[in-house]
Amino acid sequence: MSDPVLKINHLTMQFGGVVAVDNFSMHINSGEIVALIGPNGAGKTTAFNAVTGVYTPTSGTINLLGQNITGNRPDQITKLGIARTFQNIRLFSSMTVFENVLTAHHLRKTSNIFTATLRLNASEERKMREDTDALLRKVDLYDLRDEIATSLPYGKQRLLEIVRALATRPKLLLLDEPAAGMNPQETDELGAFIRRIRDEFDLTIFIIEHHMNLVMEISDRIYVIEFGKQIAEGTPSEIQNNEAVIAAYLGGDDL
């Protein structure tokens, strides 16, 4: 069997005296949708930030398709094939929907500042624009193409952030609470959308989410962490019946 898409070995993330992620190991196989859940402050987003290079791990390694990417810069990691969305939406606020997605195409550009200024990259730029339009059509955002991104309804902004991440053509997509703030109908649509892009874009997906219905519905496997430590791992049905998980979420002193 080939290397897992993502393999985290004994990741520890320490901030001063606080250990946000403690000796956490996991892996995601190609084509899987894997969820990372846990109570607030469990270290889920910290783990994401370590994977995407926002933080350099205190110890441990992170491998993408067998390649060690620990300590790389975020832009390098994106170029290697990991794209992400953010818990609090981070769209380019002065840009249109189209430009937001277009900017994500930049990482494949070959132009430099001089060729770009003198418009010697016109054919490349045209190609990026065509690809952007094609992508927007594919995900039904073309009608909103010229709207300022931050003027969209909340659910659409979440969606746009995912689409922008897709435009970097990742192998692995990290979604940080994509359903946060969505109503039940939007959440259902999001679940279907995540499955659809997994199939259409040949993705592996790693998701942090608090909507348990969504997590249980779309995940192949689930990791549960509390206080930075893994407390469970398994299929949705295994997790639902795991006592340690129930205790972590509902509280309990019988452990």
């Binding site: 981070r90 769209l91 900017t103 770009a116 200024t117």
Partner: peptide, 26 residues
């Protein structure tokens, strides 16, 4: 010309959100 170029768009992305720009490979 620079501002309206591909490069200029990357600069605007940085202005709007550094962390997101970095996550887009800039």
């Amino acid at each position: 010309l620079l501002i309206n170029s591909t490069f200029g768009r990357a600069l605007r992305a940085i202005k709007d959100d550094e962390i997101a720009a970095e996550a887009m490979g800039i």
